[in-house]
Amino acid sequence: MRKLIAAAVVLASTVAPSLPAMAATARPDTYVVSRAEGVLPEGIAVTPAGTMYVTSAGTGAVYRGNTRSTELTPFLPPGTDGRTRAAGIHLDGRGRIFVAGWDTGTLFVYHPDGSLVAKRVAPLAGAALNDLAVTDDAVYVTDSGTGTLWRATTTGPRVGELTPWLTPADFPQAPGFLNGIVVDGRVALVADQGTERLYRVDLPRRKASVVEVAGGRMAADGLLLEGNRLYGVVNFPSGAGEVAFAVDLAILDADRRTARVIRRSAPASLDRSPTTIARDGSRLLWVHSQLNNPSPAPPFTVTVVRGLR
């Protein structure tokens, strides 16, 4: 889910190192998630084989397709299992599908065949589960509503209950809108769009500190971490009172305590309102949610991010 940010961003001029060349394949630049009204797609996950999953913030549905085909189809119907809203989505090493249920306050976990594995409710009023990151033994979920970072164990076939891993008091400043999250070993990077900060979370010690960001900010919606390269979907003033969206690329230090924003993608307009990103081979894909469009209309799409790899 998206929170708009109103301050300007200045980018450094340093050129980013190139990604390794990857073989080109004939894949579409635009994917149709749905042609139905009110879908408002939000989260995306893409497997190495090219299977794409996209959630619906509007209905709670989950759509599935392949990056070689332009059309996605319904995979998990809207409203089933109480899933009336859906935000972040990720898969674990078993192929299980983890879905953050936004203001339902619920984490849903599904088998690859679509059968329900677990349904875990955050035991706090006002919880809004936004994004998540899956590790070998746990899933971590950001809560935009209460400022809590939740954790559930995933060891073996069982998914544990949601436990508050960090409370608002555990952050240097009480979060205003926790959003994107990525995990690298024992460290998580968590974006707070409310305070416009990026936090480094030592997961075993359950301790958060501020990442010093130069050349811009990484208070992002969706985050993607690849080595020392951190991608984030941000929004910013584009002039004449308008807001635009882009993917910013930052280079992290080895200990994940500093970040330097070095590059920005081609922008997207407010009515498109991209939310989050996923890697598909040499390309980045982002979801056009239309969440900030006063008159959202189908088709709802996923497209290639331009001007950045």
Rank of each mutant, 00 (worst) to 15 (best):
T55Y: 04
T142L: 06
S273Y: 09
R205I: 06
R283M: 01
P157T: 15
G58R: 05
N293S: 10
R264Y: 06
T153P: 06
L162Q: 14
G93E: 14
V182S: 14
G160C: 10
A128I: 07
A219M: 02
Y63H: 13
G147A: 09
T80P: 09
G105E: 13
L230W: 02
I181V: 15
V247G: 09
D29M: 07
G58Q: 07
V302Y: 01
L107C: 11
A100E: 11
T104G: 07
F300M: 02
T154G: 02
D192A: 03
G38D: 14
G281S: 07
G215C: 06
L124E: 13
S269W: 02
V211F: 01
L129D: 03
A87L: 11
T276L: 02
R27D: 03
E161F: 08
R151N: 11
G241T: 09
H111M: 06
L189A: 13
V302L: 05
T258L: 05
L132W: 12
V10C: 03
T142P: 07
G160N: 09
A208G: 09
P17T: 11
D136A: 15
G101T: 13
T25A: 08
M52D: 04
V121I: 14
G160Q: 12
S265C: 05
Q173P: 00
A45P: 14
G227E: 03
R85I: 15
Y63P: 06
L285C: 04
A87C: 13
R217P: 07
D103S: 15
V190D: 06
S269N: 08
E71S: 12
G281C: 04
I89N: 08
